[in-house]
Amino acid sequence: MTRNAKDTPKFPHSHLLGIEGLSAPEITLLLDRAESYVEQNRQADKRKTLLRGRTIINLFFEASTRTITSFELAGKRLGSDVINMAVSASSMQKGETIVDTAMTLNAMHPDVIAVRHQDSGAVKLLSEKVNCAVINAGDGKHEHPTQALLDALTIRRRKGKLAGLQVAICGDIAHSRVARSNIHLLNAMGATVRLIAPKTLIPPDIAKMGADVFYDMNQGLQNCDIVMMLRLQTERMHSNFFPSIREYFHFFGLTYDKLANAKPDALVMHPGPMNRGVEIDSEVADDIGRSAIREQVEMGVAVRMACLEVLTGNMPEPN
C-alpha cells in the first residue's frame, strides 16, 4: 500500500515543537487524522505500511513509560522501524551535550526523532542540528504538544466539539508543560480555560496566555465541562511550594465534593502518572462514568500516529 498523493494531508511545519504557533485548521487536521486511527487500533490487525522503510528514534532524556510506549506503538503500527533510546542523566554527565547527541543520531539518517528532555527549549535546540523531523515529546516546563492533542481528541469524542467548552486545569501549573500546551490548544480552538492552583504554583502573567486564574477550587470548577488534573511535579520543585500533601489534597485534590461544582456530565482527565490521594481521589479517578483517563491513553497512540503521518507526508518518498 502506498501513499496516495491526494489523501496526503498537508502540514506546513517540518517539526512539531509545540502547540504555540499552530492554527486551528492545523490542529483540526491532526485531530481528524488521529480519529481515523482510533478504529484501526481497535482491530486485530493494527498494522499499516504507510511508513515502511522509515526509521523513528524515540530519544528520551527523562524517564517515561506511557509516552515512550505510545510513540513506539504509533511508529510500529505505521510500519516503521522504531528505536528507543533512554539517555539517563548519568550518561549526560559523561560530558556529551544534547547537541553532540543530536549530531550523532543525525548521522544515522532517522526520519523522525521524538524527544523528551528535562530542560525547556532543549527539543528546539536539537531540532536545529538535525535534518529529520522532530517531535517534542515534552521539554521541561515548556510544551508537550502530543499530550494536548490527545486531550483534545478525547474531549472532542466525548463532547463532540471543543469550541465553547469551559475547561479547568488544576494543580501544578507552574511546572507543567501539559498545562501550557493545553492553554495554547484550547484557546486556538475556542474553548475557555480556567487555571486553579495555590498561588505558589501559578507562574507569573499566565493569564496573558489566555486563562482565568482561580485560587479556590469550588469556585473555579463552577459549571465546568472538563476538569483536567495535573500531577504534582515534586521532582521539579526547588523549594517548598505548599506545606504538606495533606493540606494540598484538602484544598486542591479532586474529590466528589469539589467535582459537584462542575456540570453534572463534566469529564475528569489526568495526563498521568497519577498521584492518588495527592491531586486526585482514587474513587474519582476510577469512576468510569466520569473519568476519561484510560481513554486518554488510547487516544495517545492515535494522535502520535497522526503526527508521524503528517510530518513524514512532507518528505520525499522512500525508494
Binding site: G121, K141, P204, D205, I206
Partner: peptide, 19 residues
C-alpha cells in the same frame, strides 16, 4: 535568584523558564 534563568513574566512563563 537560585535556579532562575531570566526575568519572570509572560515570556518566562511561555518559555517554561524559571524567574
Amino acid at each position: 535568584s537560585a535556579g532562575g534563568d531570566m526575568n519572570p513574566g509572560e515570556l518566562s512563563t511561555r518559555l517554561g523558564l524559571s524567574g
